[in-house]
């Protein structure tokens, strides 16, 4: 009888310890994984957007130079037309 009690206590203690040392629930692990997946996806999107932004930023000075050239051409045309008259 004494032995049975002893083993029961020991078994109970073991189960208690096992349950205490157990990690998060399956649902919680899924939740964490979902956040990780979302983060990875967002990182990819951010990288793409950064590329787009850089590309557009490079286009701005090119367009500005084109506009400056067009204005210069307009002035030159005006001068030439005045000379023709």
């Amino acid at each position: 009888m004494k032995t049975i009690k002893y083993f029961s206590c020991l078994l109970g203690l073991s189960l208690f310890l096992i349950s205490c040392s157990s990690g998060p629930k399956v649902e919680e692990v899924r939740q964490l994984q979902s956040i990780k997946d979302e983060t990875t996806q967002l990182q990819k999107e951010v990288a793409i957007k950064k590329g787009q932004k850089s590309d557009l930023q490079n286009q701005v000075p090119q367009k500005e130079a084109k506009l400056a050239q067009a204005t210069k051409d307009e002035e030159a045309t005006k001068e030439r037309l005045q000379k023709m008259q």
Binding site: L67, A70, D73, E74
Partner: peptide
């Protein structure tokens, strides 16, 4: 900018 360029070219 594109619009402005096009407008200046058209004017010329």
């Amino acid at each position: 900018l594109d619009k402005k360029i096009s407008s200046v070219n058209d004017e010329t």
